[in-house]
Amino acid sequence: MTDLQVRRVDFGYFIRSAAETGTGSPRVEPCLGYLIDHPDGALLVDTGIGAHPAVEARYRPRRIPLVDALAAVGRRPDDVRHIVNCHLHFDHCGGNPELPGRPIFTQRAELEPARTKEHYTLPELIDSSGARYVELDDEAEVLPGVVIVPTPGHTAGHQSVVVRRRDGTVVVAGQSHDHATAFTGDVPAGRARADGAGSPLPVPPDWVARLLEFDPARVVFAHDNAVWTP
């Protein structure tokens, strides 16, 4: 097992309106990527916030450019050899056009609506010059020690990245859950169900159990600085 480093990359933040949060108040959310240092070349999970007048008006983002975000973790765009987007909404693939030619590991169930569904994302981010997709239909080990696991829910093709390390597995869960507390809630819900607790019970997605099979030491998220630990 290799000692793969996972570094958080800060791409800025955006502001969700009270109508979107459902809380009666707006919420400022970080936009986080993760750089995996790998002997076969660095892999970047998510690339930042795409730009469009509608995005500016609705979300009032404050972006950290890709080159600056990578510099903060001691890397340059040329160091990135592989890309994974947890999904293809504008706030996760905004920097893809700045990284042409790199393989972009994507679930087929995600790429199809990103290309065809109106208002799904910013189309110019999807098939930009040099975009090169590696389409997946299920779980796949894309680099030694790096496994992509489908985690549908937020979108049909959402995926998470499992990084096996000597000191414990890290799961980059993207937007599988909006916040770490939601993941925290799903874990004991699955345990209670396995223990035969009576109904009613919350029903976590089946893939939560699959992620836990990797025995994660940490689970990190795209829009929450909090980290889940067992």
Score class of each variant (00 low, 15 high):
V172Q: 02
R166L: 07
D195A: 15
R210C: 04
A197T: 08
L211M: 06
A209H: 07
A192F: 13
G198Q: 06
D215Q: 09
A189S: 11
P204S: 06
T181F: 12
Q159E: 12
L212A: 06
A197L: 15
P200A: 05
G185W: 10
A197D: 09
T155M: 05
Q159V: 10
R164F: 05
R166H: 15
D186K: 08
D195R: 15
D167H: 15
L211C: 07
W207Q: 02
A180V: 14
V172T: 08
A194R: 15
F214I: 07
V161P: 00
F214D: 00
L212P: 01
D195I: 03
D186G: 12
Q159C: 15
G190A: 14
R164P: 03
A194S: 14
V208H: 05
P200I: 04
G185N: 13
S199Q: 12
R165D: 10
A182T: 06
V162Q: 01
D215N: 10
G157Y: 00
L212Y: 05
R166K: 06
H158T: 12
D178S: 14
P205K: 13
L201S: 07
Q175L: 15
F183Y: 11
A209D: 10
F183S: 02
D206K: 09
A156S: 06
F214Y: 14
A182W: 13
D178Q: 10
G190E: 11
R193W: 11
T169P: 06
T169A: 15
T181L: 11
S199G: 10
P204D: 06
S176C: 09
A192L: 13
H179V: 08
T184I: 10
T155E: 05
T155V: 04
P188S: 11
P205A: 11
V171T: 04
G198R: 07
G196Y: 03
D206T: 11
V162K: 01
A156K: 14
T155R: 03
F214P: 00
T184Q: 14
A180C: 14
